[in-house]
Computed example of a mutant assay.
Amino acid sequence: MMSRDSPAAGPAGIGRRELLAAAGVSVSGALAGCSGILAAEGNQINIAGSSTVFPVTEAIASAYTQDNPTTNISLSKTGSGGGFGNFFCVGRTDINNASRAIAEAEEEQCGNNDVTPIEFPVATDALTVVVNPDADFVDCLTVEQLRQIWRADGADRWSDIDDSFPDAELELYGAATTSGTFDYFKEEIVGEETNHRGDYYATEQDRTIVQGVQGSESAMGYFGFSYYSENPDSVKAVAVDNGDGCVEPSLETAQRGEYTPLTRDLYIYVAKESLADPTVRDFVRYYMEQTTSDLIAEIGYVPLNEEKQAENIDKLESNIDEVTA
Rank of each mutant, 00 (worst) to 15 (best):
R4H: 12
S6F: 10
P7D: 07
L20T: 00
A21F: 00
S26I: 10
V27Y: 02
C34F: 09
C34Y: 06
L38C: 08
A40F: 00
E41P: 01
N43M: 05
I45Q: 00
S51P: 06
T52K: 14
T57W: 07
E58H: 10
Y64T: 04
Q66L: 13
N68H: 15
G79E: 01
G81E: 04
G85K: 14
G85Y: 04
T93W: 10
D94R: 07
D94W: 03
N96M: 02
I102K: 06
E104D: 13
A105H: 15
E106H: 07
E107L: 12
T116V: 11
E119M: 11
E119S: 15
A126W: 01
T128H: 06
T128G: 07
T128M: 11
V130D: 01
A135Q: 02
A135K: 08
D136Q: 10
V138Q: 00
V143F: 06
I149H: 08
R151D: 04
R151P: 07
G154A: 14
R157P: 14
F165Y: 11
G174W: 03
T177M: 10
D183R: 11
V190R: 07
G191V: 09
N195H: 15
R197K: 15
G198C: 11
Y200E: 06
Y200W: 09
D206C: 13
Q211K: 11
Q214I: 00
M220P: 05
G224R: 04
Y227M: 15
N231D: 02
V238H: 01
V238E: 01
V238S: 04
A239L: 02
V247F: 03
E248T: 03
A254H: 05
E258G: 00
P261T: 08
P261V: 07
Y267E: 02
I268E: 04
Y269R: 08
Y269V: 01
V270Q: 08
V270T: 07
A271S: 14
E273C: 12
E273W: 15
S274A: 15
L275P: 00
T279G: 04
Q290G: 05
D294W: 09
D294I: 07
I299T: 00
Y301L: 09
Y301A: 04
N305H: 08
E311K: 11
D314G: 14
K315D: 04
E317V: 12
N319H: 14
V323I: 14
V323G: 11
T324F: 13
